[in-house]
Design a protein around this nucleic acid. Structure first.
Lengths: 151, 151
DNA sequence: GTTGAACATCTTAGCCGCTAAGACAATTGG
DNA sequence: CCAATTGTCTTAGCGGCTAAGATGTTCAAC
């Protein structure tokens, strides 16, 4: 951007930090509501978002935990009925983590409130405006991932 | 919203979750880069974002930690040179937590990369589009806070 | 002023999760 | 086949968190 006013950038920076802080609070609240630690909630979120079956080792990578810690995470989640261990039939060393319940049941009311919140927000915009917002979100996600996370 | 297509809502829901996951990863990365635990990084972020002086007790509320845990957090952050303890002259029971360094120094390159990422994204939009996006962000933050966090 | 209650932070004991290292089981390559 | 590799689990030890109580400070009532 060439002609970006400093104040504009400052405002958007504030929005980003605010969103960031709210996200952290949200995850904390969800974890508390589910009776899980932040770590366990983070892991079940990763498991739900994963495409295809997720191995214990891959979960360790994604979460940044040691494999030993992941064993404990899966133990607790399995015991609480959120996931199930399945031995991979093609490679019996591997343990696949299968989430056994859906989004809404899992996150309960909090998740539904977030969804309603999104619907309410989007309702304030017309189709053309939604297209702009969607383009922004796509770009933001892709750019942030490429420049900040995957490096 | 009345005429919201289910697919549109689904797409936006995905964006939200993606943003959410990236945010968690970002915080994890920042903490690792600074040699801090996730808890400590969360606390220093809260301290930086607070308006005016922040007491140890208030930090406990905001972070959801016990006061004893906050004592430890401040100990570590103070020892690492990120914050400073200042007795409140008007109420000497209170301990004010003062962040002693600026954003960029603190978060270092990662923070600067996030900033550059934002600049790059915003550069793809014209003034009128930026206004739509800004309105969206303001609404999203306010609505999410009101309906999901502050309840 | 003095006293007692409320308040803010710190300290401590005990618990629990995390890391690191190694054990065990399964797979792969030569 | 055998050795090396891979994937998960186990264990010991460390460190942060909670809860309860100690310490120091303020405030209101008298």
């Amino acid at each position: 951007m060439f002609n970006m006013e400093p104040e504009v950038l400052e405002r958007f920076t504030w929005y980003m930090r605010e969103q960031s802080a709210l996200t952290v609070m949200f995850h904390t609240k969800v974890a508390a509501r589910m009776g899980l630690s932040a770590t366990d909630e983070k892991c079940i979120d990763l498991a739900m978002r994963a495409e295809g079956p997720l191995t214990a080792g891959r979960l360790a990578e994604l979460s940044g935990l040691s494999t030993g810690a992941v064993t404990g995470v899966i133990d607790r989640l399995e015991h609480a009925g959120f996931v199930r261990r399945v031995r991979d039939p093609h490679d019996r060393r591997k343990v696949l983590v299968e989430v056994t319940i859906g989004d809404v049941e899992k996150f309960g009311q909090l998740f539904e409130e977030a969804r309603q919140s999104l619907i309410e927000v989007l309702g304030h915009f017309g189709d053309d405006e939604l297209q702009v917002i969607e383009r922004y979100l796509q770009l933001q996600i892709a750019t942030f991932r490429a420049r900040v996370i995957d490096t």
